[in-house]
Amino acid sequence: MVDLQKPFYGGLTLFFVAMLGWGISSAGAPGLAFGFSAALTLGGSLVCIWERSVVRSAFSLMGTFVGVAGLFILLGADFVGMAQILIYVGGILALLLFGVMLSPPDMEERKLSRVAGGLVLMGAAVAWVSAKVAATVEWAQLPKDELPEMTTSVHDIGVGFIAPDKYVVAFELAAVLLTVALVAAVYIARRKMADFEPAKDIPSKDIAGKEAAMKEIA
């Protein structure tokens, strides 16, 4: 079996540098920021599916999350970008690592036949989405080398969540759904009271017998 680790990471580094160079040459400093975020997103997800060690895969997701946060911020959605870092990296990824580090490693060799079906389906999905995007976006009208005005979107988001003619119902429904999920998780994970009761066949301490023996000695 050929060791593909070094060629893979070499290729990844080249890809990273190429993205940065492409960003600078097409749009200057904003382009560099975009190239960096995009390369981080793609590189993180590539490492995630390439690495055999599942913990390394989980860590590489951090690159993806941070890259996506960078893309959000570049699009002017600063609140969403920072929530992405705070919630996905600080919360969800930490919990994911917690679970992954406690699970035994899977040393079985990866075979193409095991994932072929999934690969075909995924390729079809990616092709379909790309075709849709290419057909709907009017490329000529996109701004090339300027960023949107750096204003904050937090006020609009807040108003959208509480204004009755906007998304207040959807927001509250999502909150209820999350609460239900939390309660259900606690219900499934909690120990039953039977786990805490002493088993029947183990004799409990013979306190009365002991006391009688103490009296005899005295």
Partner: peptide
Amino acid sequence: DLHLGAFFILGMSSLTTIGVVM
């Protein structure tokens, strides 16, 4: 001068956790 400075600082300090776990 970030509009969401406090949020950004909290997010960044939560990144250090991942480093410690790593």
